[in-house]
Computed example of a mutant assay.
Amino acid sequence: MVGRAHTPRPDPGNTDPRLATAWRLMDRIPDGATVAASNRLVPQLTSRTLVSVFGLGDSRPDPEWITDDSAQPQGWPISPDDDRRLLSEARNNGRYRIVADQDSYVLLQRRP
């Protein structure tokens, strides 16, 4: 997309299929949006969004988007159990809608 800066991506022919899914889901997040993301996904979003680490105490309150790797919870700054609990709360609290849940990557959007 012209005018949109992205972090360089690995060669698609050599990319783990799960990672390709993560990129497709992150591409759905608009530029300039507020996002809480799994620790490993944060660097992929810093060039175009206002991103914080999902579950970190000082994360932006009620980010517009949440993206999380539920198969490999980050383990820092929160435990895998806390990651799963927080993701479950976000899914079930009525404030977010599930946009995608593919290959254990989850993308949630805050309801208006």
Score class of each variant (00 low, 15 high):
Gln109Asn: 13
Arg60Cys: 07
Arg97His: 11
Ala90Glu: 07
Ser70Cys: 12
Asp62His: 13
Pro63Arg: 00
Ala100Tyr: 04
Arg28Phe: 00
Ser104Thr: 03
Arg18Ala: 13
Arg95Trp: 08
Ala90Tyr: 10
Leu86Tyr: 10
Arg97Lys: 14
Ala36Pro: 05
Pro17Val: 12
Leu41Gly: 07
Ala100Glu: 12
Ser79Ala: 11
Pro12Tyr: 12
Val99Phe: 10
Val53Leu: 04
Ala71Met: 13
Pro61Arg: 01
Pro77Met: 08
Tyr105Phe: 15
Trp23Thr: 09
Asn14Ile: 04
Arg9Leu: 15
Asn93Thr: 02
Val35Asn: 02
Pro10Lys: 13
Ile78Met: 10
Ala36His: 07
Gly32Pro: 08
Asn39Tyr: 14
Asp69His: 06
Gly32Asn: 11
Arg91Asp: 11
Pro63His: 02
Gln72Asp: 12
Pro12Val: 07
Asp69Gln: 03
Asp58Phe: 09
Thr34Gly: 05
Thr15Ser: 15
Arg24Ser: 14
Asn39Pro: 01
Pro80Asn: 10
Gly57Met: 03
Asp11Ile: 08
Tyr96Gly: 00
Thr67Pro: 09
Arg91Thr: 15
Ala22Ser: 11
Leu41Asp: 02
Gly94Ser: 15
Ile29Asp: 07
Gly94Asn: 15
Arg91Asn: 12
Pro63Met: 06
Ala90Leu: 06
Arg28Pro: 00
Phe54Arg: 03
Gln109Tyr: 07
Gln72Leu: 13
Asn39Ile: 02
Asp16Trp: 08
Val42Trp: 02
Val51Asp: 01
Asp81Trp: 03
Gln102Gly: 08
Leu87Met: 13
Arg85Pro: 05
Thr49Trp: 00
Tyr105Trp: 04
Arg9Thr: 12
Thr49Val: 06
Ile98Trp: 04
Pro80Tyr: 01
Ala71Glu: 15
Pro77Asp: 01
Asp31Arg: 14
Arg91Ala: 09
